[in-house]
Nucleic acid binder design. Structure first.
Length: 469
RNA sequence: GCUCCGUUCGUCUAUCGGUUAGGACGCCAGGUUUUCAACCUGGAAAGACGAGUUCGAUUCUCGUACGGAGUACCA
């Protein structure tokens, strides 16, 4: 059995959108789970629409998603000579022909066909023309595709799909300027790159039948096809910019961890029994085309968040800190100072299972990130009224000479609450406001432990004095 | 127009002819709780529609409806 080779072949005409990212992920999982190779090819034969910025965005997106590929990035445009070579070989074999029809002639043909309710596929009069009759004019090279019988696609996802050959047109292989067209380029590239499994969007299912004509004419073995359904927006319509069709870098900027993104995307349109939450290793082991569904899936941010929250919770602190740093960069937030990252690192243990995204985690880490003056948000301000400040003023001295451990702090605070005839909850609000300036924070004990005695007492004192001392 | 593909709770999905149609997210109720989150318990919630095959269809076949894709000298 030959080794598996998959590829991701985006065209660089925009950012790497979520559907493309999932296609890349599927190919990556398939290859990586089988000890195979995963290649990247940029389909840049459309010079007018391809941009280096887009290629860059694709590369960045894949890097963020952790989808590493083997070998160099392959530019399809760079291989134009090879594509032309194959076209000429097809010509020599009589499997392709030169077509001198003008755009006007083709247009006229289509209009007539449409009016007659027939297939609009252009039927070139040059298909069987004698070379002696060829004019000295520009021409395109078209594939002489079969006209009878049917083409059968054995697709791993779609099953057996039969298309009558009469519905296949003689597609253009080489433009009149001699440059190759995508349909030719994919086939030649996939063949030359040794691609064994073509996993791509099902918008290419029809194309597969047409491309198979080239394989047959060249006598090449077909790859295994798996045409996966596209992702739709929340309204079930085609994904548009308004809902979810954002570039993957925007998901990074929104603060989703990439492991969660991979998990969610893998689960979108693919399943392995009831497993919802899994690691990369599990996904690689489990992934196969048999688990891919046939119907389009919709993107759901709620579920993404849930999965991401679970991944944040199991990520080790060092990796998490690193990813948060990268997130801040992607979101154009100021870099963390040394003190901030030290404190954040120390606080991660009590933060990571309370947040679904990095912004949420950072929001809860607010107490650890403040340096200097604390601004009290309105919701917390009511916990710092005169009465509360009095309580804090009475409490603070009692924390002067205790050993700064969780047990000790719990003991002191509980005793204080009891002595003053109040429930601990009554005490927690003011403490939270004093330590973080917020109403929603991690446990007050965790905050005091992370901040340390000196800073904790400083903040308590400041709050007790009304914040104006 | 023509060709191809799809359709199970709101969403992602399981089911490979016989199930009280399962799980997850979300939602609702209750519990726990120093806030948030988490957690625990319970609940509502689905086979597009119509025929056919079969002892028996969510599952197989056909049709209809609705979505999607392709039909380029775009990819």
């Amino acid at each position: 059995m030959t080794a598996v080779v998959t590829r991701f072949a985006p065209s660089p005409t925009g950012y790497l959108h979520i559907g493309g990212a999932r296609t890349a992920l599927f190919n990556w999982l398939y290859a990586r789970g089988r000890g195979g190779k995963f290649l990247l090819r940029i389909e840049d034969t459309d010079r007018a629409r391809s941009t280096p910025e887009a290629t860059d965005a694709i590369l960045k997106g894949m890097e963020w998603l952790g989808l590493d590929f083997d070998g160099e990035v392959i530019s399809q445009f760079d291989r134009a000579d090879r594509h032309a070579e194959v076209a000429n070989e097809l010509l020599a074999k009589g499997a392709a022909y030169k077509c001198f029809a003008t755009q006007e002639e083709i247009e006229a043909f289509r209009e007539e066909a449409r009016a007659a309710g027939k297939s609009t596929h252009f039927q070139s009069p040059w298909r069987d023309a004698d070379a002696a009759t060829h004019p000295d004019a520009p021409y395109v090279v078209r594939l002489k595709s079969a006209q009878d019988g049917e083409t059968v696609i054995n697709d791993e996802v779609q099953g057996t799909v039969r298309i009558k050959n009469e519905n296949l047109d003689d597609m253009v292989l080489l433009r009149s300027d001699g440059t190759p067209v995508y349909m030719l380029a994919v086939v030649v590239d996939d063949y030359d790159m040794g691609v064994t499994h073509v996993i791509r969007g099902d918008d290419h299912l029809n194309n597969a039948a047409r491309q198979m004509g080239i394989y047959t004419a060249m006598g090449w073995d077909l790859p295994t096809y798996a045409h996966i359904p596209l992702i739709h927006g929340p309204d079930g319509k085609k994904l548009s910019k308004r809902h979810g069709a954002l570039g993957v870098e925007e998901y990074q900027a929104m603060g989703y961890p990439s492991a969660g993104m991979r998990n969610y995307l893998a689960r979108l349109g693919w399943s392995h029994g009831d497993d919802e939450f899994f690691t990369d290793d599990q996904a690689k082991e489990w992934f196969g085309t048999d688990g891919i569904g046939k119907s389009p899936a919709r993107f759901d941010f709620k579920k993404l968040e849930n999965i991401c929250g679970q991944h944040i919770a199991i990520t080790d602190d060092a990796a998490l800190l690193h990813e948060i740093v990268m997130y801040r960069e992607a979101a154009n937030l100021p870099a963390l100072t040394d003190v901030q990252s030290q404190r954040l690192n120390a606080a991660l243990y009590c933060l990571k299972d309370r947040a679904k995204t990095f912004p949420e985690l950072l929001e809860k880490a607010h107490f650890a990130l403040i340096e200097g003056e604390i601004e009290v948000e309105p919701k917390a301000a009511k916990n710092l009224d005169t009465v509360s400040r009095g309580i804090l003023g009475a409490l603070t001295p009692q924390l002067q000479n205790v050993s700064w451990t969780r047990d000790e702090l719990e003991a002191v605070l509980n005793r204080f609450a009891e002595d003053n005839g109040m429930k601990f909850g009554k005490l927690a609000g003011p403490l939270r406001a004093a330590l973080a300036g917020r109403a929603a924070t991690p446990s007050v004990f965790d905050m005091m432990l992370v901040l340390g005695q000196e800073i904790s007492l400083e903040r308590l004192t400041q709050a007790a004095n009304g914040g104006d001392s």
